[in-house]
Design a protein around this nucleic acid. Structure first.
Lengths: 214, 214
DNA sequence: GTCTATATCTCGATAGAC
DNA sequence: GTCTATCGAGATATAGAC
């Protein structure tokens, strides 16, 4: 049984879930300090007093939202990795799954980015705790798949750590800068969801050819 | 001669420059609303009254910092594109120049990202104004180089817009998430600047192979 | 659990002496 | 131009009736 300080929102009441969702959006957009409790209360359709009744303080609310979002974000990484026979298939499945997760949970990723902009002190604490508990972070699994593919001669000899970082970059960055992409890219403005699907195809094509043996 | 509302910080006094630099760092880290005038004053080594003496209000200060940063950010894109004879060289020079610019101006990029997280209303306004004034944004130039390389048969037939977005993603994202990268990636923690150089090599290798004809 | 009213504090901004 | 002191708005947080 998890301790009280790190419960999954599944254990929340309806009201708590409403607050949590509203807080996630607000913190993701405005950051830890820029977020306003009034804005969260409005979005959750309750008043400010109720916020404090359920979550005591802004700091506790942020900690709760951040800790859960971080676990979700890391878990999604592992969940996007299926058990495909070839590396080609592994890459395909990972890009599809990971991009889909971000499309459905954009605020979670925004919150991670926001923490990085602010210096990542809370982030570093959580990451190190996860490293100690599990001896490695989820990206490690993709690193190992790449190493295996290199050893098997399926792809060129590339640095697996740099490669994983590049895959993550291309899967996430266009969500981070969605407002800019919408202005610059006509197709994105016309139909975002269709654009995301097209992007999955492009990313797989670009990265697979980037790794494949000539 | 530029109008008074959009001057380059080169026209600033020493004090104004100190304030500008401090404000850029603070806005980049905490965002428009999360930033604190007191923190900016402290970093600029002056008191709050002087801030308002020079920049009237937080809003005006932000507008000044944002408008200048955006122009710089866009200009860097064009400046990173040399006049190399082959696409291979073009890509090499661009990645080097663009990554170097971000390494030296991380806060500028952070501010752009921060605006995107917040919804990008100021960003959209500026982008559209630039589009109207020059009929196209700087990324357009790289798009054209890719189109030309495709037509010349130098690279595979790829979507140039998606490709440019992927190049930008890989060049910027690891700076955005620098605190995370430093925790996860041992080489980055040991020597960041060396890591950045290694990353330039990796990116060129990955993307060039991703585009090259088999 | 929910709401109104209010306490307390922080922040942006200004007044006014120098 | 620079600084101290302070105002007033707006933010977090709480008290207390229901």
């Amino acid at each position: 049984m998890p301790d009280a300080g790190s419960q999954h929102p599944d254990a929340y009441s309806d009201t708590e879930r409403q607050i949590f969702d509203a807080a996630l959006q607000e913190f993701a957009r405005k950051g830890r300090d820029g977020a306003r409790m009034q804005a969260i209360a409005d979005a959750a359709d309750i008043n400010k007093a109720m916020l404090h009744y359920y979550f005591r303080s802004k700091e506790r609310l942020y900690d709760e939202v951040f800790a859960f979002s971080m676990r979700r974000f890391m878990a999604a990484f592992g969940e996007s990795l299926g058990a495909a026979p070839t590396f080609r298939e592994t890459l395909r499945v990972f890009i599809d799954g990971y991009v889909d997760f971000i499309r459905d949970n954009r605020a979670v990723m925004q919150l991670m980015v926001s923490e990085n902009l602010a210096g990542g002190s809370a982030l570093g604490r959580h990451l190190r705790r996860m490293q100690e508990a599990e001896h490695a972070l989820p990206p490690r699994v993709l690193v190992e798949r790449i190493e295996a593919a290199v050893d098997a001669g399926e792809i060129r000899p590339v640095d697996p750590h740099h490669t994983v970082l590049s895959v993550i970059s291309t899967c996430l960055f266009f969500f981070v800068t969605e407002p800019t992409v919408r202005v610059i890219h006509p197709a994105a403005r016309a139909d975002w969801s269709e654009f995301v699907d097209a992007r999955k195809e492009h990313l797989f094509d670009l990265i697979y050819h980037g790794l494949a043996r000539p």
